[in-house]
């Protein structure tokens, strides 16, 4: 059984159909990429899966359970975490606090237990902090934990955003253009980082990406969207040789048309 399944999901904004009958199947421990020209509806598809938008039509199943129309926080607590295209860290807060916030969804104590520092809360707080520090050490941000998150260099901010998503204990990690704005060196680091965390945290990864090196290098399956329509899906090799994909990216020559 697939871990995540999108069945004919469609998103319409008034008269505009941003995503049309999108089907997706994610199997455990796969890396799946979603590519397509600008405005193809990739982020919209992401937003439907993570609950930011409620699809106009279609259903989304996670581990066989219908999750269509749930709130983003409910979907996250089920085990789907995401990052954003334009980094959305909690800028004024420290690196450690950013990760601690992602742990909040596991807090069982109520607000009074937290205010009066009752034993159950103190235990949770302690384990939360040690878990977060451990996570930061794992992703190589251990020395920076008390820095303000907005003071980190760009590549580290990306890394922190991924770490923050990992702190919610996801089964699926959705990355929205993780390599956007990165130089070749940073891109390379990121690629190996993604592979690493996939193994370490037993993840399934679904990502939007424009950098073809990243996409072709690590994904098992690629989906191609153009104007909201899935024009191709398959292995990196198939996609590279798919006529429709080449047309969508490079255009059609007038002689052929």
């Amino acid at each position: 059984m697939s871990l995540l399944k999108a069945d004919q999901i469609t998103m319409q904004f008034g008269g505009l159909t941003a995503v049309n009958n999108f089907n997706l199947e994610l199997n455990k421990n796969e890396i799946v990429a979603l590519i397509g020209p600008n405005g193809a509806g990739k982020t919209t598809a992401f937003n439907m899966i993570t609950g930011v938008y409620n699809p106009t039509k279609g259903k989304i199943y996670f581990e066989g359970k219908d999750i269509t129309g749930l709130r983003p926080d409910q979907i996250t607590s089920l085990g789907i975490a995401r990052t954003f295209q334009n980094i959305r860290l909690f800028k004024e807060l420290s690196v450690l606090e950013n990760v601690l916030i992602a742990n909040h969804l596991n807090v069982k104590s109520n607000v009074f237990e937290a205010i009066f520092k009752l034993p159950r809360y103190m235990k949770e707080e302690k384990s939360m902090i040690s878990k977060s520090i451990e996570l930061l050490d794992k992703v190589g941000l251990g020395d920076l934990k008390y820095e303000k998150s907005s003071s980190l260099p760009y590549g580290k901010q990306r890394r922190l955003e991924i770490a923050r998503a990992l702190a919610t204990n996801p089964k699926i990690l959705l990355l929205d253009e993780p390599a956007a704005g990165m130089n070749p060196k940073e891109t390379e680091d990121l690629t190996s980082f993604i592979k690493e965390i996939k193994e370490q945290f037993d993840l399934t990864i679904f990502m939007i990406e424009h950098h073809m090196q990243v996409v072709m290098g690590i994904s098992n399956v690629i989906y191609v969207l153009d104007y909201g329509i899935t024009i191709a899906q398959g292995s990196p090799y198939d996609i590279q040789n798919n006529q429709k994909v080449i047309e969508a990216y490079l255009g059609v020559s007038e002689n052929d048309a």
């Binding site: 930011v52 983003p72 926080d73 996250t76 909690f90 916030i101 919610t168």
Partner: peptide, 11 residues
């Protein structure tokens, strides 16, 4: 700091 990010962190 950021409502959208907070919500997708499970808050």
């Amino acid at each position: 700091e950021d409502e959208i990010a907070a919500e997708s962190m499970g808050i």
